[in-house]
Write a protein that binds this DNA or RNA. Sequence first.
DNA 1: CAAATACCTTGCGCTATGGCAAGCGTTTAG
DNA 2: CTAAACGCTTGCCATAGCGCAAGGTATTTG
Lengths: 191, 191
Amino acid sequence: MNPSDQLIAYIQKLNPLAEGDREQILEKFKFRKVKKNEFLLREGEVCNFNLFILKGSLRMYMVSPQGQELIRYFAFENKFGTDLTSLISGSPSNEYIQAIEKTELFQISKSDFLGLVDSIPAINRVYRNMLEQAYVTSQKRIYNFQGKTALEKLNWLLEYSPGILARIPSKMIASYLGITPFTLSRLKAEL
Amino acid sequence: MNPSDQLIAYIQKLNPLAEGDREQILEKFKFRKVKKNEFLLREGEVCNFNLFILKGSLRMYMVSPQGQELIRYFAFENKFGTDLTSLISGSPSNEYIQAIEKTELFQISKSDFLGLVDSIPAINRVYRNMLEQAYVTSQKRIYNFQGKTALEKLNWLLEYSPGILARIPSKMIASYLGITPFTLSRLKAEL
DNA sequence: CAAATACCTTGCGCTATGGCAAGCGTTTAG
DNA sequence: CTAAACGCTTGCCATAGCGCAAGGTATTTG
């Protein structure tokens, strides 16, 4: 499937498009290839774009005062990704967004995106869905990590995202789970 | 300050009210007193209301499959509180909402609230603020708990919510922090 | 292709936190 | 007002997970 069809298919799963919407939408989304480890956003920058991932994966993370990377989210193909907090507020981001693999994506500026949100009902629905999902996802993460052992957290991750261990460096999985790479390595040995 | 003024003051801090808005708003919010430990929502029920707390406090929590209570949020005076996930989706809640203290609040039905969101700009702003805050709060919680020790989590809580230890049972604080009451008790002894 | 780099694993000892039991103080309810 | 219930503390022991160091493997880069 070509990139444009992939995006349109995603949108149409949420809401049908009216005559002419397709062109209006595709006009604003810019295709972009990013290399492995390339940054799309760095701490301190204002996030003024939204991304739709076609192929590959990104990670969103912050760096703690002690210099430790804390991963908040892995974004794979057919997901929108951005730093919502910075996007909404217009304030500088606390996060980095970085490609984990060689990645292909569509990028749209904040103003173009918000324009489409207002003018095209299907995109309005996409945005609402993003906000709701973002909230629900973070709630789930809180509830599933609360007082859980490393093994329980790992099992939870593997359940809703099987195969992730083979795709993403263990180091990053550990950071996402809030455990050390050592502990993760030992757990994997017992699976 | 009387309850009506308290609510109106809260709203006006976000956005000014137009002529006649006050009456329209107050008409829809019902004053309600709840006893300590009284439930406002139970797991399995659909959350079709929004609450504004005038006095007292609520807790939102879920019960894990192992029967453990996991507290997500404490809501104090001058805060809106609801189960956003259930409210938005219309699906049954995974949470309980319970009064921690004797509490006075305003309750508004989902439909009345969404009506005001559409008809009164200031309320629209209130809702947007709720959504953004909800998301930002949960992000903060994730980042501040990730790989942190019990003491670090406690210090973080005390910083943004000093005095909470004197007001809320330790048991609940422990549940919120994801540690055992025993550990919390020991930490308090060292503060 | 080779050297350098990054990543993963594993062993060892240590510490923080959990689990449990007992005792105390305070709140609740008849 | 009293008994029961509940919540908090504290001691003791068990253990999960961390920190560090060393060695092996894979990946990157020139």
